[in-house]
Write a protein that binds this DNA or RNA. Sequence first.
RNA 1: GCCACUUUAGCUCAGUCGGUAGAGCAACGCAUUCGUAACGCGUAGGUCGCCAGUUCAAGUCUGGCAAGUGGCUCCA
Length: 653
Amino acid sequence: MINIKFPDGSVRTYDEGVTAYEIAMSISPRLASDVLAANVKFESDAPESKGTTYDLNRPINADAAVSLLKWDDDDAKRVFWHSSSHLLAEALESLYPGVKFGIGPAIENGFYYDVDLNGASITEADLPKVEKKMMELASKKEEFKRIDVSKAEALSYFEAKGDQYKCELISELEDGTITYYENGAFTDLCRGPHLRCTDVIKAVKLTAIAGAYWRGDEKRQQLTRIYGITFPKKSMLEEYIKVMEEAKKRDHRKLGKEMELFTFSSRVGMGLPLWLPRGSQLRYTLETFLRKRQAALGYLQVVTPNIGSKDLYVTSGHYAKYGKDSFQPIHTPQEGEEYMLKPMNCPHHCEIFRSAPRSYRDLPLRYAEFGTVYRYEQSGELHGLTRVRGFTQDDAHLFCRPDQIQEEFEKVIDLILYVFKTLNFDNYLAQVSLRDPNNKEKYIGSDENWAKAEQGIIDAAAAKGLQTVVEYGEAAFYGPKLDFMVKDAIGRKWQLGTIQVDYNLPERFQLEFTDADGSKKRPVMIHRAPFGSLERFTAVLLEHTAGHLPLWLAPDQVKVLPVSEKYADYAKKVCELMNNSEIRASIDSRNETLGKRIREISMLRVPVLVIVGEKEVADGTLSVRREGVDQGSMPVEAFIDYFKAEVAKELSE
RNA sequence: GCCACUUUAGCUCAGUCGGUAGAGCAACGCAUUCGUAACGCGUAGGUCGCCAGUUCAAGUCUGGCAAGUGGCUCCA
């Protein structure tokens, strides 16, 4: 007999080898039908262990704490979707004999399987057929069977099948730890865990087909990746599809068009956004917001040119690292000099630092610039405003004494959090991006400096109480980063704010300051950009707000609508009063019905509409409508006070 | 850059078996002077992404190129 402890603290005894499914049945059949997997933590496991996700049918052979996992648990979803990928594979094998399989994991929303169709092709038009096959197999109530297998057996099975991908995976595994899972006629190399039976999969949608390199290596075979999502209830799939459709409505590319913010032209060039007047106003407001804050924090605004001599980037190391993969040098016609489009601002700022002797008393020096940079991004990577070839960073470089790094770094974290808070970005992820310890040749600088810089970031994030995740291999080539990641409307992650500690560029540029004792010392640089870039930040901001920007940021804050042209003079008068109070107001007195003008202006997401007609002219008032909601009528002065109070509220800390 | 798909009026989209293109909105004109999300009538607007090919005939079929979309790889 073994003791099984439940999350509520109660303990029951079962025969050794009992399964989680049997345990659930012993509590209630209803529970057993809802349970998808179990978390099992043996008494022999380390105290800090989170336990192991177990198949419902896998025997439990020792005393353990067991919690039964239902759909709401992320671990259960993962099992559900992982099993769904095996169901997809089974369907594909029956429809496309000879298909070979790469890997088929669960992902954040669903699953995929990478397959080699052996010369056959599959298009989106074929997906309904595959979905139908999957549902047919699911309804057969096929059990997932876990089977231990030796390495030799596994290799000979997949060699006979001709599946070189599985053979490659098996060859890297240790004998004695290899398991198969079988569902119906399909056998897969898999560590599991899986569902008990396919019949809990009640709804499936294959969402996309894409190419994906085998093992993520662009030099290797490209496989066909089929993405899908499944649910235990049909209604959940319908709900999911509805949510995705809603999310697509807030795509910044669609909003950018509707709100007349930006456009692209293939004649200008791909990935080169054109900011329309309303978008430029938005961008300018964002710049002013940050500029003001930075001035208060002791930043000094600088301006540097859009090109720089190739030598500058040879010195910085950027040329060696990115030279071949960037826009190629521009040559002067007479002297044959080589210039590059500025891909980043740091080298220019280093030269500003070098332009005069610096004392320890001068530091930290904080040079800020809304610097436009150009980077060659692969054509397939370009995406709306989130990934472009020409963009403007809200960049600054802080030249510090070593003893100032910690404090300066923490102040930058505060600034980024201030920006995020003002714009209601609460779902960000702080990511500590360190260098890949197995791939040090990708980076410049000494191990000692890297260790110092990495520790500095970890300490500063901890001091600020930030919840962070650590990612290896995500550092910049000259230093580690603290990146603030935010998701877009459909869940793609983008890096916005970033802070980087850099010991390397000061060395390459031979930067120095005179310390208190008269000796020359090397400063440390902090690179930082709270928005990241104005382009990407605008994109994510639009998706977060669905275009309903806060009042202070809206390009057009107020539109004044005279009911008919008879009241245009009054409209003009109140509009001027607002403009004098620095409210971005304008008049729409077009010869169109009021209803039509309201509709069009609402589509542009203008937050406040002010309507004036006979009554308002007589009383000296305005009829105010904000975000579609009637705010009643008020005197002009009262409206201006109301407006200013609302803006102040949005910008208050 | 790679794989797949897409490209018709300013925008959103129809266009069947290959027979020289259509709607709504927008624009322009007329009428209207209007009270909280589309008033009415009319006019104009197209090298069907570009270049080849097949055909008596191509928006439609084939190939190449370009741009866009979804992934992959990359991301200073």
